[in-house]
Structures are given as structure tokens and as C-alpha cells.
């Protein structure tokens, strides 16, 4: 069974079509990157798949559950890390993690074990009792990712997860994301080609709300006769593919 099946998903805002008949499938445990310039429809796609906004037409199924009919069920096994850090500023790092455990229904026992594990994985021990609002952007970003991972989601949406992270923190986060592959299905949106190439099983390129192609990085580069993903992306988006 596919973890995500998207069928002709469309979102229109008055006279603007943000996503137009998008269809694709993501296998369980696969990491798919959504690439596209601003306004390509990546964020709208993630919003529809995470039940934040309703599609104008079409449907999508997450582990067999429809985003139109089974939003409550879907919300029990997904997590989203938005582009902004989206943390509770007045709470400590630990309290933020407890909040996410609580709203996801984890028992107190499971909560402590999970917080310990995620804190260790993301090296948050040194800031665990500090107020989130007082942390630097990089620490807030780590916390944001931790808040998404804390419920051990089956499907994870990561929107520009390494934005604002330094090289070391980014490398550690990449390692963490790699360790999730195979267990967690991940849909990642990014502008960073290096990130997409380093982490993705497949890459989907969108433009003006439409899916231009979806394939492995090697295939995408080969299809335009280059060994650089960035060049391949630019040529595909500009319609210069031979």
C-alpha cells in the first residue's frame, strides 16, 4: 500500500489555481522532496495533505484514509513542521515537547521516554529547561523538528526543515532524517538542491501548481544531460529540457 496517494488534487483561490490536478504516489517509508520556485504550489499541497485546507476538487489518501472524509484519523498519525518555527515562546523546551505529547494523546510514561529519546537525538539537553522564545533561531528550528517528531508520526511533512541552521546542526538533522527513512514516510519541501539530493528517494518538481516530473535525482539529471541537480531543475522549470 502507498503511504500517500494523490488523485487529481486541485486547489483554486478565486481566479488563482494554486495546485492543478496533482497526482502522485509515495511509498511507505519513502522520502519525497517537493521542489519548486515560490508559488509553485508546494505549501498548498502540504496544507491539503495535512488536512489544513480542503481541496477544490480531487482527493488524497494517507495510509488509505481520505483527506476529505477521514481528517480526524489522519491527524492521529501525521505531523507537520512548518516553515516558521511555530513554538510556544513562553514554555520551556521540555514543556513544548510535553504539549505536543499531550495533544497527541501519549501517556505520561510514554511521554517521558519519548522526550528523553528525542532530546538526545536532537541534542536538546543543554536547552531543555530554557524558554523557547529566548532561544536562537537555530535552536528554535531544532525544537520545531523535535515537536514534529515527538509523536512518532507515520507520515511527516517537513517544510524547509534546515532553514536557518548552521552547517553542523544541518548535518546532524540530515543524519536524523536519514535514520527515519524506511520507518517514516516523509514529504519534504525545500529550495535547497543539495538537501533534496542528499536525502530524497525521489524528487517531485512543481511549477504553477502542476507536477512537471517525479523521479530519482539521478534520472532527473540524466533526463536533461547534466550531472548537477540545480542545473537540471532550472532547465526543467524554464522548459529548456531537450
Amino acid at each position: 500500500m502507498y503511504a500517500i496517494t494523490v488523485n487529481a488534487l486541485t486547489k483554486r483561490y478565486r481566479d488563482v489555481t494554486a495546485v492543478n490536478h496533482l497526482s502522485l504516489c509515495v511509498e511507505e517509508g519513502e522520502l519525497l522532496s517537493l521542489l519548486g520556485i515560490n508559488g509553485a504550489g508546494k505549501s498548498t499541497t502540504v496544507k491539503m495533505l495535512s488536512c489544513l485546507t480542503s481541496p477544490t476538487s480531487g482527493d488524497a489518501f494517507l495510509l488509505g484514509k481520505s483527506i476529505l472524509r477521514d481528517a480526524d484519523a489522519i491527524k492521529s498519525f501525521i505531523a507537520v513542521s512548518p516553515q516558521e518555527t511555530a513554538v510556544a515562546p513562553g514554555l520551556s523546551v521540555r514543556e513544548n515537547l510535553e504539549l505536543m505529547c499531550g495533544v497527541n494523546g501519549l501517556s505520561k510514561q510514554a511521554r517521558n521516554a519519548r522526550i528523553e529519546e528525542i532530546t538526545s537525538n536532537l541534542r536538546l539537553e543543554s536547552v531543555l529547561h530554557r524558554r523557547a522564545g529566548k532561544l536562537s533561531g537555530g535552536w528554535q528550528r531544532r525544537l520545531s523538528i523535535a515537536m514534529a517528531l515527538i509523536s512518532d508520526p507515520k507520515i511527516l511533512f517537513l517544510d524547509e526543515p534546515t532553514l536557518g541552521l548552521d552547517v553542523i546542526a544541518r548535518s546532524e538533522l540530515w543524519a536524523l532524517i536519514r535514520s527515519l527513512k524506511g520507518k517514516t514516510t516523509i514529504l519534504l519541501t525545500t529550495h535547497n538542491m543539495e538537501e533534496a539530493e542528499a536525502l530524497s528517494d525521489r524528487i517531485a518538481i512543481m511549477k504553477d501548481g502542476e507536477l512537471l516530473l517525479c523521479d530519482r535525482a539521478e534520472e532527473i539529471k540524466r533526463s536533461v544531460g547534466t550531472d548537477r541537480l540545480e542545473e537540471a531543475f532550472v532547465r526543467i522549470v524554464k522548459g529548456e529540457r531537450s
Binding site: S50, C51, L52, D72, K75, S76, I78, A79, V80, S81, P82, A86, M100, V103, N104, G105, M147, A148, S151
Partner: peptide
Amino acid sequence: QRLYTTPL
């Protein structure tokens, strides 16, 4: 927005 994607 993050909390809207949880079971709340």
C-alpha cells in the same frame, strides 16, 4: 497551524 494538524 501546527496544532490544527494534531487530534485537537
